[in-house]
Design a protein around this nucleic acid. Sequence first.
DNA 1: GCGCGTTATTTTAATAAATACATAACGATA
DNA 2: TATCGTTATGTATTTATTAAAATAACGCGC
Lengths: 110, 110
Amino acid sequence: MFKVNGSIWIEGQKGAFIGFGRVILLENIKKSGSISEAAKSMKMSYRQAWELVDSMNKQSKKALVVRTSGGAGGGGTMVTEEGERIIKLYKQLQNKFRKFNKVQSKNLVF
Amino acid sequence: MFKVNGSIWIEGQKGAFIGFGRVILLENIKKSGSISEAAKSMKMSYRQAWELVDSMNKQSKKALVVRTSGGAGGGGTMVTEEGERIIKLYKQLQNKFRKFNKVQSKNLVF
DNA sequence: GCGCGTTATTTTAATAAATACATAACGATA
DNA sequence: TATCGTTATGTATTTATTAAAATAACGCGC
């Protein structure tokens, strides 16, 4: 009947750094090579996608993505090695959190 | 530098049942004996407080609060034994979650 | 230099959420 | 029956969030 659920993220002094939505965005950027394409594919406004990317990049010592504007094809955005590492790191965290919630759900007494 | 944080709640088919804000509301109702007083003390509109209380009560088999309108003093709201049990239950859950986040924060590699 | 498609930025519009306001219902007490 | 302060509920207003639109900047290739 009842179950435990929640959301989990990694934060720095400036607030949220990596969370569920941001990781999906990074993965879509990796797939498409473009912020605008990634935003479109997940029905997010370009503006919001750009702001999330900018927030992540500014907070991280090593950039998670590299962006180029202009040039052949207009430019694009690539996920760096560090970006890929962060994606994996968050997914591992999320998996542990899922297990935690599962255990806590079983322990609920109603 | 970076740390893991999150929010956790208990949900049923109709969505959220108990979360951080709802527990604080219950505690304030317990203190004051009134939804309107509790709402005022936490700068929440009466309407929202009432809706949260109503949502919790409707979802629980045993009522978390009993409300009386009219009568001496205009009426009021009392937290039941079940309500107190749910408050404790959530707080225990939250403590475990805090520990989880602390451990995960230490394991972060940046 | 011009066109192309993307990133970057500002401005405007639309939507959603929260709050405020108004009013009825309630029931013990005097 | 009139008063009181609370619960209960509908409606209007305001605020906050989100999305949309418009425009500039960029730099390669033709």
